[in-house]
Computed example of a mutant assay.
Amino acid sequence: MIKSTLVQRIVENCPHLYQSAVNNIVSAILDEIVEGVARGGRVESRGFGVFSVSPRQARIGRNPRTGEYLKIERNRFAVFKASRAVHERLNRGEVSN
């Protein structure tokens, strides 16, 4: 699902809200998640999951096309761990509209 589809589904479920307001709310939530993770923090949404940052150490890699070895710099990447409720719902196979 893309952001515009998410906004549209929320508007359909909450017809008293304007689409522009829902778009602003969804954008604000996503921006706050990104900012929280960018600061190296952990963003937790009970019943949904946890966004966090995991470091990756510098290492020597290999270009598979040329076989050349190269140095890969240390970096950080975002990690998402789904909550138990999400795992249970996925394993039951339930999909709601």
Rank of each mutant, 00 (worst) to 15 (best):
G40H: 07
V7R: 01
E35I: 13
A82H: 10
Y69S: 07
R89T: 09
K3E: 09
A21T: 13
R9L: 10
A58K: 14
R46E: 04
Y18D: 14
N75K: 15
F51R: 06
N97D: 12
S83T: 05
P55E: 14
S83L: 05
A78T: 14
V95S: 05
H16N: 11
K71M: 10
E94Q: 03
E68W: 04
E68Y: 03
M1N: 07
R56D: 03
N97P: 05
A28M: 06
S54M: 12
S27F: 06
R89Y: 00
G93F: 00
K71V: 13
V95R: 02
L30K: 09
Q19E: 12
A38R: 15
Y69T: 13
N91H: 06
R89W: 00
N13K: 15
I29P: 00
R76Y: 13
S54G: 08
T5H: 12
F51C: 04
P55W: 13
E73Y: 05
A28F: 01
G61F: 00
V22P: 01
N13V: 11
Q57H: 15
Q8H: 11
G61A: 06
S27M: 07
G40Q: 08
V22K: 04
V95D: 00
R46V: 14
Q57C: 09
F48N: 08
I33V: 13
V26T: 11
L6H: 04
S52H: 07
I60C: 01
N13H: 11
E35S: 15
R9N: 11
G36V: 06
L6D: 02
R59P: 00
N13E: 13
G67L: 04
E12H: 10
F51T: 05
S45G: 09
I60L: 06
E94G: 02
P55M: 11
L70E: 05
G67M: 04
A82K: 13
S83N: 05
D31Y: 01
E44H: 06
V37P: 08
G67N: 03
R92P: 02
L17K: 07
Y18S: 15
R92K: 14
R9E: 12
G93C: 00
A21H: 12
N24F: 12
S4D: 01
S96Y: 01
L6R: 04
F48H: 08
V26L: 08
